[in-house]
Amino acid sequence: MKNVAIEMKHVSRKFVSPTGKITLALRDFSLTVHEGDFIAIVGPTGCGKSTTLGMITGLNPPSSGSVKVFGKSVQGIDPNIGFVFQADAVFPWKSVIDNVAIGPIFRGTDPKIANDMAADWIRRVGLSGFEHHYPHQLSGGMRKRVALAQTFINEPKILLMDEPFSALDVQTRALMQEELLGLWSEKKASVIFVTHDIEEAIALADRVIVLSKGPGSVKSSYEIPLARPRDISEARYSDEFVHLSKQIWSDLKDEVQI
């Protein structure tokens, strides 16, 4: 039995506007993620998907309920957690290698060792030859590869991803999904991947969680029986994949219809 990496029990999260209006983003939300699990969360806009990630990082403490990481209540930022955002979180004035090396340097690694580590990760994400380029000289997909290298170089035990590939074109997105699965299979971090795309969720995850419209709560959970290692391009055309996609969409459509 794998150890529990993330445990959220009966969590609710309220936000108060400057005018005093209270908005309930999540209500009675519970989720357990074991070590090495790859979980995808789908749901309509405003259902609290990003709020969920914020509570795990410690940036948005719950209004009620409990959030634990490796058995300990979340208090502040945990260095075991990596976060990949929808927007590129790269420093525009730094080169690729400097962007990738900055995490280890910040954590106290000798700069020469950090640069050697960064060069290795740049190679692993397919960016050899671009070490001294700057973000504005890279395509969207290449910047996402930098973001993955930035995150994986710190060897996070938990990886939180908030719609990281949504701005990419279809072909680049498919390549980045394959890249992510390859890196994850090496390190086996526990992943929570937020997306609006049902097919992306099925292609990547071991389990897909469907949230209700806001205030969000767990509406349903689907185990994904597709074999690993997973060839996404092949899996998408399987009868099992199509059936799951229809099932999840049927469950989700009532939440997104006005």
Rank of each mutant, 00 (worst) to 15 (best):
S64N: 13
V4G: 05
A119V: 04
S30V: 02
S250F: 01
T195K: 05
L26N: 15
M161V: 03
L211A: 11
S250V: 00
A5D: 11
E178Y: 02
I153G: 13
V11N: 14
F15N: 12
W121F: 02
L148N: 10
T195E: 04
S17C: 14
E179P: 06
D28K: 07
G141T: 06
P104Y: 01
S220E: 07
A203E: 08
N154T: 14
I209Y: 03
G108K: 10
G36L: 03
V191Y: 08
E155F: 03
L24C: 13
S212R: 06
S221C: 04
R230T: 02
L31N: 14
F70E: 00
R228N: 00
Q247G: 05
R236K: 13
I153A: 13
D110W: 06
P18Q: 08
A174W: 00
K14T: 05
Q137G: 13
M161D: 06
V33I: 08
E200L: 04
V170A: 15
F70M: 13
V170H: 09
I97Y: 00
F241Q: 08
Q137S: 11
W249M: 11
S50Y: 10
I232F: 07
A205S: 15
Q247K: 12
S221Y: 02
A167S: 06
T51R: 06
Y134S: 09
